[in-house]
Amino acid sequence: MAKGRKSIFITGAASGMGRETALLFADKGWFVGAYDVNEQGLKDLQDELGADNCLIRRLDVTDRADYRAALDDFAPAAGGRLDILYNNAGIGRGGPFDQQPFEDILAVVQVNFIGVLNGIYEAIPLLKATPNSLCFTTSSSSATFGMPGIAVYSATKHAVKGLTEALSVEFRALGIRAADVLPGLIDTPILPPGAVEAAPKEGMFRAMHPSEVAKVVWEAYHSDRLHWYVPEELAELDRASAAAPEAVREQMAGGAFFSGPTDRKPD
């Protein structure tokens, strides 16, 4: 039970950015709800956090009824409050668009966007009931400009970014804040072998530890900032894409930027 502590509900919590966020917030004295399809990863996380500091549960974010049930379990344990909803779960399946199985395309849309819609929609009552609550979502560096090789993944992350912007305005009337994070190359075991070693040692696509994203979630709760970039230099790409999309397109075609899914998670 939260016993008066602030609470955070995290999807994709069994590994990577979600796990690091759970560890950080527990260390800060928050009560953590950790959700994933990876049950063993959740059990390992619970062992590290302590059963009194967290609630774990398997959650398929694409199943709206399952998401609702998870929130229904979380609410009494958290004392009826939800200070941060962190929709972090996602998958990455890439390749040339014309060669991808359509089932893979739909799976990416279902997890990365429909899953986010499910979570936000079902969490609104709890977020409304909690002063200064934050609806936070993982977007991606691929939401700065459409990334070749991961076109649908990139499209879902653009959708998440656009949704966040719209809800940051709409939710003011409900007393809820909204923000997102756009991570670049995050150093987790999920990346393809050799990806970290092949990454540049500096610049916007250098490899970053997932704890850097966790720090941003913490900072976002104490800020009114809308978009967060990890590393911060990715904001330059976002601005360049808005100012001169054709120039960025030509740079992409020339292989100037890293084009792999940078924050992907396993099914």
Rank of each mutant, 00 (worst) to 15 (best):
F74P: 00
P193S: 01
G175N: 06
A26K: 10
S168V: 07
D66H: 13
M204C: 07
F136Y: 10
A220Q: 05
P101D: 07
L237R: 04
L85G: 00
A69M: 11
R64M: 12
F257N: 05
D60G: 09
Y121Q: 15
K157L: 03
F145L: 03
V111Q: 05
A199H: 05
S223G: 11
R225F: 09
P245S: 01
A34F: 06
A243Y: 03
M252N: 04
T144V: 12
S168E: 00
L85C: 00
P131V: 07
F145H: 03
L23D: 06
N38M: 11
I84W: 02
A65L: 15
K6F: 05
G95V: 13
P231D: 00
P210V: 08
L23C: 10
F205M: 05
L127E: 04
L226V: 09
F258R: 03
L23W: 06
V61T: 08
W30D: 01
E197M: 08
D238F: 07
A240H: 03
Q40F: 14
R249C: 04
V248K: 01
R81L: 12
Y86M: 11
E20T: 08
T62M: 12
G162K: 11
A220R: 01
F74R: 02
Q110H: 14
P200H: 03
P125R: 02
A2M: 07
G119Q: 06
S141R: 08
D72F: 06
R206S: 08
V213T: 06
C54L: 13
N38P: 13
K6P: 15
E250D: 13
L185E: 06
K161F: 04
E165P: 14
T138D: 01
R57K: 14
D104A: 14
G90I: 06
K161Q: 07
F25P: 00
Y153C: 03
A159N: 05
A242Y: 12
I84R: 01
M204G: 02
A199F: 02
P261C: 08
P231H: 03
I186Q: 04
D180G: 10
P192E: 04
P96T: 01
S7M: 10
M204Y: 02
D180V: 13
I186W: 00
E202H: 07
P245F: 00
R5I: 11
D180S: 14
I176S: 02
D72H: 10
F31Q: 04
S154C: 06
L226S: 02
V32S: 10
I176P: 02
H158N: 09
R177L: 05
A244I: 12
W218S: 10
D224W: 08
A240M: 04
D98I: 11
I120E: 03
D73C: 14
G12L: 11
M17A: 07
M208N: 12
S241L: 09
